[in-house]
C-alpha cells in the first residue's frame, strides 16, 4: 500500500517540477532566439537570418552592459546584506513576541509592497537630495531597502514564529556565550529562512527601475535601466541579448539555493518546538 502511495507522490512531484520548468523556461526561449535573429516575421517558425549583431552591441563599450552587470550585482548584494541585518532582528521581534502596536508595525513594514514606488519616489528624491545621497550608488542601495526589507522581514517572522527559544536557553544553560549560542544554535536553525528571504531581497533589488533611475539620477546605471530602453523600443533582438545576461545571476543563485526552497526545508515550517 505504502509503495503505491510513494509512486503516486513521486510522479506528482515530477509532473509539478516539469510544469514549473516549462512555465518558467518556455517564455525565455523566444527571447534567446530573438537575440540571434535579424528579423523574425510571421509565419516563419524560426528566423531566416541569424546574426550576432545584438550580442555584439550588448557586449560593446557603448552599451555598457558589462559595467552595469558588475554595478547591479554590487548594489543588489549590498541591499540584500543590509536587508538581512535589519530583517532578522525585526522578524524575530514580530514572530516571537507580542507587544503593543504590533499590528501597526506590521502594516508599516508591509506598506512599501502595497504603495506603488512612483508615489513615494519623488518625495524620497527630495529627501535624498537634502541628505546628499541623490545620484550616488549608496543612495540607490539605501532606497532599494524600501522594497526589499518587507520580504526579508516577513520570511523571517514566519521562521521565528516556529522557532522555539528553548533551544537557545538550553545552550545558554550549558555555558555557551550569547554569541556562541547565536552562531551554533540560532543561526543554523534560521539559515534556510535567511537564504530564502535573501533570495527574495536580491531579486527585488535586482529588478528595481524607477527608484534607481530617480535616486541614481542617471549616474547609477543598473541593468533594468538598459534593458527597459530596448524592451520599450521594440528591439526584441537587443532586449533578448541583454535579457539573457540579466537573468543569469538570478538563475545561478536559484540553482545554488534550490535545496533550501523545497517543502522539506525549515524555511517554510521551521524545526518545531521542543
Amino acid at each position: 500500500m505504502s509503495g503505491a502511495d510513494g509512486v503516486f507522490t513521486r510522479s506528482f512531484r515530477v509532473i509539478t517540477a516539469l510544469v514549473l520548468i516549462v512555465w518558467l523556461v518556455l517564455p525565455l526561449i523566444p527571447l534567446g532566439i530573438w537575440s540571434f535573429a535579424k528579423g523574425w516575421f510571421f509565419p516563419d517558425l524560426l528566423p531566416r537570418v541569424w546574426t550576432l549583431d545584438a550580442w555584439e552591441y550588448a557586449l560593446s563599450d557603448t552599451a555598457g552592459v558589462m559595467d552595469s552587470l558588475g554595478l547591479t550585482i554590487y548594489i543588489s548584494v549590498c541591499a540584500t546584506a543590509l536587508s538581512i541585518l535589519v530583517g532578522v532582528p525585526a522578524g524575530r521581534a514580530l514572530g516571537m513576541y507580542r507587544f503593543r502596536g504590533k499590528a501597526a508595525v506590521e502594516l508599516a513594514i508591509l506598506a512599501p509592497t502595497i504603495v506603488p514606488g512612483i508615489a513615494v519616489a519623488l518625495g524620497i528624491h527630495s529627501v535624498f537630495i537634502w541628505l546628499g545621497l541623490a545620484n550616488t550608488v549608496n543612495g540607490v542601495i539605501l532606497v532599494h531597502l524600501i522594497p526589499t526589507i518587507p520580504y526579508m522581514t516577513l520570511v523571517m517572522a514566519g521562521v521565528f514564529a516556529n522557532h522555539d527559544p528553548a533551544f537557545e536557553q538550553q545552550a545558554r544553560s550549558l555555558g555557551a556565550t550569547p554569541l556562541k549560542t547565536f552562531w551554533y544554535v540560532t543561526l543554523p536553525a534560521i539559515l534556510p529562512g535567511i537564504v530564502v528571504g535573501g533570495l527574495f531581497a536580491f531579486l527585488v533589488s535586482w529588478s528595481q527601475y524607477i527608484l534607481t533611475l530617480l535616486i541614481g539620477g542617471g549616474r547609477v546605471v543598473t541593468l533594468p535601466l538598459l534593458l527597459f530602453n530596448f524592451a520599450t523600443s521594440g528591439r526584441n533582438d537587443i532586449a533578448g541579448a541583454i535579457g539573457m545576461i540579466y537573468i543569469l545571476p538570478g538563475v545561478i543563485i536559484l540553482c545554488l539555493t534550490a535545496r533550501h526552497l523545497s517543502g522539506r526545508s525549515s524555511a517554510v515550517g521551521g524545526y518545531g518546538r521542543l
Binding site: 519623488l122 528624491h125 527630495s126 537630495i129 537634502w130 541623490a134 545620484n135 533611475l213 530617480l214 539620477g217 542617471g218 549616474r219 546605471v221 535601466l225 538598459l226 527597459f228 530602453n229 520599450t232 523600443s233
Partner: peptide, 30 residues
C-alpha cells in the same frame, strides 16, 4: 561624455523638476 539612456524623455524632465522643488539650483544631475 556620459550618455544616459531614457525610455521616456519625461523621466529626465521630472528629475530636473524634482531637483528644482528640492532647491538644487546649481548641482543638478542633468
Amino acid at each position: 561624455l556620459n550618455r544616459v539612456g531614457l525610455s521616456d524623455t519625461s523621466e529626465a524632465v521630472n528629475l530636473v523638476l524634482g531637483e528644482k522643488e528640492a532647491g538644487v539650483t546649481d548641482a543638478g544631475a542633468v
